[in-house]
Design a protein around this nucleic acid. Structure first.
Lengths: 158, 158
DNA sequence: CGACCTAGCTTGATGTTTCAACCTCTCATA
DNA sequence: TATGAGAGGTTGAAACATCAAGCTAGGTCG
């Protein structure tokens, strides 16, 4: 449990300040987005993400593995979600003829309609919670910073 | 479901890029922190946060309502977590004599020891996942940006 | 004093995520 | 042409969060 390492590299004041603020954001933002989506559209943020990614894919179809990657979710999580979405007739699983171990997920017309109907209120929320609070310069900084963090998070779980 | 509002204020390219990256971060970072904490210390990130906040409070004691606020969690969530932590003898509930409807949470000595033992590996993880990827300037930018977002998130749920 | 109102907290049901185990199919290799 | 390894996917159980309902103690106002 206790590592035998020397003194840990503690955070200094600037780092601690940044960390507390970031921590609050990653704790509150997902919840805020989720509850808006649930209230206005009756779906999870993650379900929306899955369908949104499908809606932009060629043929509105994507392999589950690939879908898992673009949504930053585990394969297991995705499988459960796709099962739920199939139950609502928004997505259908389709086996691939020439490769028996991949499964494709295809967005149905009803699913596409659902995404289209849910998008406006979602974008408005993102705007209110994120971009209305930042100026142009900060938007670019946010992208640069997030991209760097994302890179180190991504190798972690690949 | 469909608002009767005019055209939504869609995101432009820069905003969309920033949003996709930020979205990845808020999707992956909590999971990464949680799984490190679980693996190395056998507790949830949120349980750690609760105990860490208590460890810095005067008398290692805080009212549940207040504890809920500083951890950015709901009262209900907190109540469940405190029950779990009581079962492990890390926290104790203590009614307040002069006001029968508040409940205090006090960190036990064992709980304090647990926080102290868990801190180093946690800090190391935060460093690897966040600060090792940023330069000094970006740390300040991150703080400024996160603080702004946090402000708009906080009035949302008060 | 007595009836209501609200703050603070708890609880149980429901839904979602995670974890570990498992299955099936492909491909490389002998 | 077997055989083993590993990729892709599924599933059930356990852990956790959220939601709505409920409970009790303090105030408030008639």
């Amino acid at each position: 449990m206790a590592e035998r390492l020397p003194e840990p590299r503690w955070l200094d004041d600037e780092e601690m300040g940044a960390w507390l603020a970031l921590n609050g954001v990653i704790l509150l933002l997902p919840g805020a987005l989720d509850s808006q989506m649930q209230r206005d559209n009756g779906i999870t943020m993650f379900e929306y993400l899955v369908m949104a990614m499908l809606s932009e894919a060629p043929g509105r179809t994507l392999q589950l593995k690939r879908l898992a990657r673009v949504t930053n979710g585990s394969l297991s999580r995705l499988s459960h979600v796709v099962t739920r979405l199939e139950g609502r007739d928004w997505v259908r699983r389709e086996p691939l003829a020439d490769n028996g171990r991949v499964t494709m997920a295809r967005l149905t017309d009803a699913g596409y309609a659902k995404v289209v109907a849910s998008a406006p209120s979602h974008v408005e929320t993102v705007r209110q919670l994120v971009f209305d609070n930042l100026d142009r310069r900060q938007v670019r900084q946010l992208q640069e910073i997030s991209t760097r963090l994302l890179r180190s998070l991504a190798d972690d779980c690949d």
